[in-house]
């Protein structure tokens, strides 16, 4: 599995406008909705569920990364949106530090294995300081898409 298999490249936001967690979630879910990936009339419900999930336990995993996610019947396969914040967002992260990269995942109800594989891929790359640095330094959606495609093609990257 590569980023290209689940990241919606039309839902990449190189500079999140929101300075807070809920605002960032709204931006990212709306971007997926605008790209036509969430079916009709599901956007608001998904936003509410992602925020609810986030309140139960933060997905801010440390190292400036958060991976908000839910299962929802609106999608048939895992789909992700990616947002970058240069100022940092308070995600109530485990290490209490601001988040600069947000990877939002919406997973289907009935294929938990796909969700796990997408998460594995996200963390495999975001573990690497070099990857996080390139992601944070990206200024356009095209640069981020290029970075993700390069990571797919070159596993050593």
């Amino acid at each position: 599995m590569g980023f290209a298999d689940f990241v919606c490249f039309e839902a990449i936001i190189p500079e999140l406008k929101a300075g807070d967690r809920d605002g960032a979630i709204v931006e990212l879910v709306s971007a997926l909705d605008k790209a036509g990936r969430l079916g009709k009339g599901n956007c608001d419900g998904i936003i509410k569920e992602v925020i609810k999930r986030e309140k139960e336990a933060s997905t801010g995993m440390g190292k400036g990364i958060a991976v908000p996610h839910v299962k929802h019947h609106a999608v048939k396969d895992v789909v992700a949106a990616i947002g970058v914040s240069s100022t940092g967002i308070n995600f109530s992260s485990l290490d209490k530090k601001p988040v600069y990269s947000v990877i939002l995942l919406i997973s289907p109800m009935d294929s938990p294995d796909r969700h796990l594989q997408a998460m594995e891929h996200v963390f495999k790359h975001l573990q690497k300081e070099k990857f996080r640095k390139f992601l944070r330094q990206s200024r356009t959606a095209e640069q981020i898409e290029g970075l993700l495609r390069e990571a797919d093609e070159n596993p050593q990257f």
């Binding site: 990364i65 938990p112 294995d113 796990l116 573990q127």
Partner: peptide
């Protein structure tokens, strides 16, 4: 490490 554990992608 939560991040490393997530990298196992351990399915049922």
């Amino acid at each position: 490490s939560i991040m490393q554990m997530s990298m196992l992608a351990a399915t049922c």
